[in-house]
Design a protein around this nucleic acid. Structure first.
Lengths: 132, 132
DNA sequence: CAGCTATTTAGAACCATTATAAACTGCATT
DNA sequence: AATGCAGTTTATAATGGTTCTAAATAGCTG
């Protein structure tokens, strides 16, 4: 299994549930955005055994902390995650709430001229809201 | 009262509660960021009579719809609002969850090169996360 | 295999937000 | 000034995403 080492190297035990969630999240042609509820549904569709909701939350947070997932800053009643962990941005379609990746090269360099004492920039995220 | 007309012109009845909330939100030297709970506290401090939490929610949403407040896209368990409705961005201090305004002039022009068919750009918001 | 710690799990708890429905109020009309 | 009505406020209940709890289970080291 190709995810066993990845997990071990991160200090996460490669449990059956985590490996199955890895399959759903990372064994895909394209990256994608999801909420916990959408992921739960995807897991139900692809996996025979049940994985409890608490484990899905735990795992997603563990993966996010390790940098395998990113949270997308957006105002919604649910938290959105992204399996695309490269430096990039998002279109947000206000009409249907769907997200579209916006590559760094489509935005150009962003130059933050102001500095905050004693602080480093961890990330710069652009959200482009779309309307009709 | 200077807010009566503003409200009437927006099709909102200038009720006592709305006028008092206007005082707290807009009769200030500086713009500020707030959550509903923080606003509730501010109202308690400044106003003698009680305004119910439901009214605070209703009013904030009404004001946002009319463009007098902006929601700040950020992942938090609470929704953040901004009384600064000019086009601008935010630093987000991960350590304490505080926001700092980042003026448009401190970021420079952002050129979104990619277009989405049939959609217009409504807003472009940059969130700069800060760490130690 | 033994023992320890990490992980999983079902269900309860939490808490921000929204819905409800009754009371009240601003305001146009008489 | 009284009337009527839609808009608003209110306390409270309901909702729903997320987190907590504590017991059962599983991975891993010696």
């Amino acid at each position: 299994m190709k995810y066993i080492e990845k997990l071990r190297n991160s200090g996460l035990r490669p449990t059956k549930q985590r490996l199955q969630i890895c399959e759903v999240l990372f064994n895909t042609e394209r990256t994608f955005h999801f909420t916990i509820n959408e992921l739960e549904q995807k897991i139900k569709d692809k996996i025979d055994n049940k994985i409890s909701l608490a484990t899905i939350y735990n795992t997603v947070h563990a993966f996010e902390k390790k940098g395998y997932l990113k949270q997308i800053p957006i105002n919604s009643n649910q938290t959105y995650f992204d399996t695309n962990i490269t430096d990039h941005h998002h279109f947000y379609n206000l009409k249907d709430g769907k997200l579209i990746d916006l590559e760094n090269s489509d935005v150009g360099p962003i130059n933050i001229k102001r500095k905050i004492d004693g602080k480093k920039i961890k990330s710069i995220e652009v959200l482009v809201k779309l309307e009709d």
